[in-house]
Computed example of a mutant assay.
Amino acid sequence: MDPSLWTALSALLGAIVGGGISYLLNRQQLANQLRVQQETNKVEFMAETTARHFLEHKSFTDRSFETLRNHLGGFTDDELRRILVRAGAIRVYRADGSEWWRLLSRMEEFIERKQLDEIAREI
């Protein structure tokens, strides 16, 4: 074989091995950064997880702000609202003016339940 071909193949092999090592190291570094960020913001991260837990309950699509505030103490009302938005919730107001929250991902379920309730009332 031609010596220049060996040179090209060894350069290609070196680039592939170096690229693979860089990829693996970069991936590990990103995972470590994510862990550090979660640890740094652990209070907010856990509050968001807890809020999502309450809003994902199978029996309730909506939760009142008062209920969420009672279970997620230690935050001002505006901080709690930011946590709820980060958890994927939207705010709705009832006819009596009370503030309720529901996950945007459960909107279809809410609409279906509302339609079933209307049908049950008609019967």
Score class of each variant (00 low, 15 high):
L5H: 14
L5M: 13
W6T: 10
T7W: 07
A11L: 15
L12G: 15
L13M: 13
L13V: 15
A15W: 05
I16D: 02
V17P: 03
G18L: 07
G19N: 03
G20M: 06
Y23A: 15
L25E: 02
R27D: 11
Q33W: 13
L34V: 08
L34Q: 05
R35L: 14
Q37F: 13
Q38K: 08
Q38G: 12
Q38L: 15
E39A: 14
V43K: 04
F45S: 08
M46K: 13
A51T: 02
H53K: 10
H53V: 11
F54L: 12
F54M: 08
F54A: 01
L55K: 03
H57I: 02
K58T: 08
F60L: 10
F60S: 12
D62L: 15
D62P: 01
R63L: 09
S64P: 06
F65R: 04
T67I: 09
R69W: 03
N70G: 09
H71L: 04
G73F: 00
G74I: 01
G74D: 00
F75T: 00
D77V: 14
D77T: 15
D78H: 13
R81A: 14
I83M: 07
L84V: 05
V85Y: 05
R86S: 15
I90T: 10
R94E: 08
D96L: 06
G97M: 05
G97D: 00
S98C: 04
W100F: 09
W101P: 03
L103H: 04
L103F: 04
M107L: 06
F110I: 01
R113Q: 13
K114D: 07
K114H: 15
K114C: 07
L116N: 10
D117F: 08
E118T: 12
A120D: 09
I123L: 14
